[in-house]
Simulated assay, not measured.
Amino acid sequence: MLRTVAMGVLIVSGVLLILTVFRKKLGWAWLSVFGTHLILAALGIYIVNFSGVLTDLHIPLNPTTIGAVTLLGLPGVLMLLGLKLTLF
């Protein structure tokens, strides 16, 4: 039952997102901006991992961490560093 509700919410939100993108005439320009943010997020995490500043600290490159850094920018990298230091 819960899985069906979750799938319904996912489908409805996806359709509404697509409608919003095409009704507002955003076009495809937002995709290049998002792609740039995505690449810079992965690059920021990569620099932190291999810079050697904190040798025992490693942030994995996965969709969750890259998504957080994509949305938050440089403070997202600092947030992940803080979480890694305090939780693990």
Rank of each mutant, 00 (worst) to 15 (best):
T70N: 03
V12G: 03
K25Q: 10
S51F: 08
L54T: 08
S13R: 09
F22H: 09
L74K: 14
L57F: 05
T36S: 14
L54S: 08
T64S: 06
G27I: 02
G27N: 05
L74H: 12
I39E: 07
T64W: 14
S13E: 07
A6G: 11
N62A: 01
M7R: 15
T64Y: 11
G82Y: 09
T55N: 10
M1S: 15
N62G: 03
L31C: 03
F34R: 05
T65K: 00
L85F: 11
I11R: 06
H58P: 04
S51C: 06
L16F: 07
L16R: 03
L2W: 15
L54Y: 13
L19G: 05
G35T: 00
V77Y: 02
T4L: 15
L78N: 06
K24F: 10
K84F: 03
G44V: 08
V12W: 01
R3V: 15
N62R: 01
L61I: 02
M7G: 14
S13D: 05
M7D: 15
Y46Q: 07
V12S: 01
L71K: 03
L83E: 10
T86V: 13
G73N: 06
T86K: 12
T55S: 08
V53N: 07
I39R: 12
L80H: 08
L31R: 05
T36E: 12
